[in-house]
């Protein structure tokens, strides 16, 4: 941990590079980091509140806030997995903690997540969704979400080096998990006898404490908060352990 702190300038640099690289040589440049999620969310909002006219507008807010977290989670986990191979040349050249690359992938995801909250708030204002002081809880929810995701990313990154099929397997699992997570549907729609499956899904509690303050306008209960924190810390512990056990072997297999 203390050694990672020494690399804070590197993290800042890598994240900034990731954000700008995607839109380099485009006319609007960095503006895209805001426009992209805004356009994406705008479409979802129109589809869910207008075209489908399923429920009220707040259903669109439910879907949007859920997707925001989900996109962060999958994007970070996926790029973490490929981050070691992508930086192979550096890993065989400079002695650095190998956690740097998956962590910086998650930090870039985090930056995108935080940036996309701006457009989300804009949509809340435009649609007249009630906004309360519960929004002040979001930073805590985001930190917990980041710790959880970083744990998963750290655990999977070395495995993806040792076994070539891990990336594909995880992609399939993430797909499955997406449907097992109440993002597009409310958990109340799930028949009683199946809800335990949804409740076993570790992503649920972490998502809940982020979506609750936006969609319901409520600060999460102590139980939900504890559940999310527990899941996040377990993921982090697993990630750190996998890394400690296998970190030295990465250079042999990359």
């Amino acid at each position: 941990m203390t050694t990672l702190w020494q690399y804070r300038e590197l993290f800042v640099y890598l994240v900034r590079r990731d954000l700008t690289l995607r839109y380099r040589r485009s006319v609007l440049g960095l503006l895209w980091t805001v426009l992209h999620p805004l356009a994406h969310m705008g479409v979802i909002f129109v589809v869910f509140s207008g075209v489908l006219s399923l429920r009220t507008e707040s259903y669109a807010v439910y879907v949007l806030s859920g997707l925001l977290f989900w996109n962060f989670f999958t994007q970070s986990v996926t790029t973490s997995m490929t981050s070691l191979a992508a930086n192979r040349a550096l890993l065989l050249k400079v002695p650095v903690p190998k956690t740097i690359f998956p962590l910086s992938a998650c930090l870039s995801g985090l930056a995108n997540w935080v940036i996309s909250i701006g457009p989300l708030l804009l949509i809340l204002v435009v649609s007249g969704h009630p906004m309360g002081t519960s929004l002040l809880f979001l930073p805590i929810a985001i930190v917990v979400g980041f710790l959880f995701t970083a744990g998963v990313g750290l655990a999977l990154a070395p495995l993806a080096v040792f076994f070539r099929d891990v990336v594909e397997m995880v992609t399939v699992v993430l797909r499955l998990l997406y449907y097992l997570t109440p993002i597009m549907y409310p958990i109340t729609m799930v028949p009683e006898r199946f809800t335990w499956i949804i409740r076993l899904n570790p992503v649920g509690p972490v998502l809940e404490i982020f979506r609750g303050p936006i969609y319901l306008g409520l600060i999460p209960s102590v139980q939900s908060m504890a559940a999310a924190l527990l899941v996040a810390l377990v993921a982090l512990a697993v990630g750190a352990t996998v890394y400690r056990l296998t970190g030295d072997r990465v250079a042999y297999h990359i």
Partner: peptide, 27 residues
């Protein structure tokens, strides 16, 4: 940093950016 042939720089990044990343990794 160990100097070897094809001394891995990230192709997408400019020379300056590669200098910064390498040097930041060096501490």
């Amino acid at each position: 940093p160990i100097l070897s042939l094809g001394a891995g720089f990230s192709g997408d990044l400019t020379g300056v950016e590669n200098v910064y990343i390498n040097a930041l990794l060096l501490g």
